[in-house]
Amino acid sequence: MGEWRGDLLAGVIESGSSTVTEIAVPYFFLVSGFFFFKHSYYEKGEYLTMLKKKGYTLLIPYLIWNIIGLIEQIVAGQYHKTDPHDILYDLVLSEWNGPLWYVRTLMIFMLLVPFYGWIYNLKNKMVLVVTLLVAFYTWRTVDCSILSTEGIMFFLFGGLFCYYEKYLEHKINIKLLTVLFALWIIISFVRPCWGIGIHKVNTLLGIFVFWQLLPLCSDRFKSIVLPLSSLSFFVYVNHVYPLKAIKLTIASLYPENEVAALAVYFIAPIIVLIIFLFIGNLMRRYIPNVLNIMTGGRI
């Protein structure tokens, strides 16, 4: 509830952590493209079959959780629009549940696949390279627009890795990985000569390092996390407003308190995560069909 200070400890940690976690959305698009381009949508009936499937797994949850977000905004007295055009516009922009912008943009990419999917079917390396270079050049980091340039870039690169999957199996030695990890963290927090170029390089570095770190996860860690992964979408669509409520409550109790700000920055997400994993497990036990529809068949 005070002026945000990037030069204070809380500001430095929040800013650096935000930069580190910027790899999340590009990574999601990369993985989505990887699995999406495993199929050709030019065969008879394939495109329509894909649209029906995505309607169930993406469109229906998108509509449900945006409507829930709209109801929450109305109850909180934060939404007063009545014009049908404005309401439709806000639905398309996912104004009622901000994180779902990713799902909206992903659906558009999939809908438009007949216009660019031939690039992969053609199997012409020159056409593919030129396309990816153009995508890289036009890429703007942290772009959440309807046709996100960041989304386009990594979605297309996901398709590339789908065709050259063997390169994903390459592992670097632990010493080099440690150096690259340290470099990624230092750049994210220190931001030397910060600009669009270094920002892009840092995002690519972070994704590479993250991918290389995954095999190092212990079996015990996997045994804990993987069973919870089916509820990740449920947590994803529910976290914004409760997280905001906790932050605003703490801010009102401890205004302009850096210690409180830093504590809530780390603790609030954990609290919200635990709450919705608990609720999700209850729904999975007692009303699994409802949860299945609301999450697009992800349980």
Score class of each variant (00 low, 15 high):
M1A: 14
I13A: 03
I13S: 01
E14W: 04
S17Q: 07
S18I: 04
T21Q: 14
F28H: 13
F28S: 08
F36N: 02
F36A: 07
F37P: 04
K38R: 14
H39Y: 15
S40M: 05
E43H: 13
E43P: 05
K44P: 10
Y56F: 13
Y56Q: 10
P61K: 02
L63C: 11
I64W: 03
G69P: 04
Q73A: 12
I74Q: 11
Q78R: 14
K81A: 12
D83R: 13
S94C: 14
G98S: 15
G98F: 15
W101V: 00
W101G: 00
V103M: 03
R104G: 02
M107I: 12
V130Y: 07
L133D: 06
L133I: 12
V134K: 12
Y137D: 07
Y137R: 10
D143E: 09
C144Y: 15
C144V: 15
I152D: 02
F155V: 12
F157M: 09
G158T: 04
G158L: 03
G159N: 05
C162A: 15
Y167K: 11
E169A: 14
H170P: 07
H170T: 14
F181V: 01
I186Q: 01
F189G: 02
P192W: 01
C193Q: 15
I196M: 15
T203G: 06
I207H: 00
F208V: 06
F210I: 02
S229M: 09
S230A: 10
L231V: 02
S232I: 08
F234L: 04
Y236L: 09
A245F: 11
I246M: 10
K247H: 14
V264R: 03
F266I: 00
L273M: 12
I275G: 06
L277G: 05
L277V: 09
F278D: 09
N281V: 10
R284Y: 08
I287V: 13
P288Y: 04
I293R: 02
